[in-house]
Design a protein around this nucleic acid. Structure first.
Lengths: 262, 262
DNA sequence: GGCCTCAATG
DNA sequence: CATTGAGGCC
């Protein structure tokens, strides 16, 4: 069975109801992983998805910030929610897919503005978060797919200007190195670059603050899909739906879509 | 010349852009008086009206609350803004119409929840406001039209239940008496009841809090158009556009429309 | 129930 | 620039 899996930092699932419906109608993924749902589980708009067949729902939300969810038309087994930093932030939810693969949906902290552990505690929290994920990855022994908003653009070609962003949180060497250690800890395969090889254009995020996001095109690749090395051969296709950035009332991130034999 | 004059408590002119356009397109009034525009003059959406021919604009707005405006396709002379209570609240703007009539656009304070001068200063402020308008009306010597949200429903048939609202701010005897004195001070003719005689249905406001405003129909007549006695004969028609309450993202008030020979 | 501001966060 | 929610007001 080939599964079609989408991942999207939606920047509020409630504010994005019209366009998440459009995505489901146009792409018909089997599974949708969301980040930044920004809503408590009790008032998650589950009917919106249920009415389209996504009756299997794993939620890990909180009041105002963060929040992740997995919505699926195929049965899922709940595989728990990690709180790697034990701070109560809703940044992960996991599932076991039909066929046995594990699916991990993650929202890594943004890290604030100043790339300095001393001056900006949020930057330290981000690095610590990645470190804890690294420890966790080292012990992982099952074939796993990990997707989400990692808030780090690792390669030079993953940002509109490597030079301009060297000191901008999301592309600093210290973050890139931390992400590299995370990747090595399990031998994670970067599917974004397996299917769209560097230096090909592969942005997943454009700031809201640009007057014309498409014209200035100052994008970054912050969203990722990675898999265990032994299942990399089973991935069939991977796409970044850049056009969604131009939809009505868009998220600043666009959806990623993967097809994989499960 | 017959002038078609509309008055509407719009509850934020910015939030109501789509439906104020619809009102202008459907009714084509010569003059539109707005209350509760909730916007400073500097960022009033004047183009929205200008593009439809309402190039004559008298504004009296403030940051968050209150705010009134007169938008006109026929020339207006500015006739000043009263601040009867000298508290800086933007609750009045006046104009002189072609033909010489005066037009006064007023937003009387709502008065808070508790109908008690001691316990609720806002209730006292409302009564004081009406009193000061009364003193002003006594001295009025010109043919005048006064329109707006008076926040008082004077007659028993002006509310969905006289008994249930006797102790509810907007229909208490003390407010109704104060409004009566204001009316007597100039001999103001209540055009709402001249053209739609009591006890005919004549609500202009339905709470947002009702689940189904039309089904429960707990309306009140809070909005009014009054004129000097010597010009009452010149009014041609008067309507309350109840259907606007059912429009998309409505105001809780509906527009009133008057035709008068000016 | 809806509108407004404001302070966070991204 | 765009979200959320708190608090005030109607």
């Amino acid at each position: 069975m080939t599964l079609k899996i989408a991942s999207w930092n939606i920047n509020s699932v409630r504010a994005r109801a019209p366009i998440v419906e459009r995505l489901l109608d146009e792409e018909q993924p089997d599974i949708l992983c969301l980040q930044e749902t920004k809503v408590m589980d009790g008032i998650f708009p589950g009917d919106l998805f249920r009415s389209r067949g996504y009756v299997h729902q794993l939620l890990n939300g909180q009041k105002m910030h963060h929040g992740v969810a997995i919505l699926s038309r195929v049965p899922l087994a709940d595989h728990g929610k990690h709180d790697w930093q034990d701070n109560g932030e809703a940044r992960h939810v996991g599932a076991r897919l039909p066929g046995g693969l594990r699916l991990e949906n993650v929202y890594i902290p943004a890290g604030g503005d100043v790339p300095d552990r001393e001056k900006n505690p949020k930057f330290g929290q981000k690095l610590d978060f990645v470190e804890r994920m690294t420890r966790w990855s080292e012990k992982l022994a099952e074939p796993t797919l990990i997707v989400g908003d990692f808030n780090i653009a690792p390669l030079e070609c993953d940002v509109w200007s490597h030079k301009a962003l060297l000191d901008i949180v999301s592309h600093t060497p210290i973050e890139v190195e931390a992400l590299g250690r995370l990747q090595d800890a399990h031998g994670w395969v970067d599917l974004g670059r397996r299917h769209i090889p560097a230096p090909e254009r592969n942005f997943t995020w454009w700031s809201y603050r640009a007057i014309d996001w498409a014209a200035s095109d100052r994008g970054r690749r912050l969203d990722h899909m990675w898999c265990s090395p032994e299942i990399a051969e089973r991935t069939r296709s991977h796409r970044v739906l850049e056009s969604c950035r131009g939809w009505e009332r868009p998220s600043d991130h666009v959806p990623l879509i993967l097809e994989i034999d499960a």
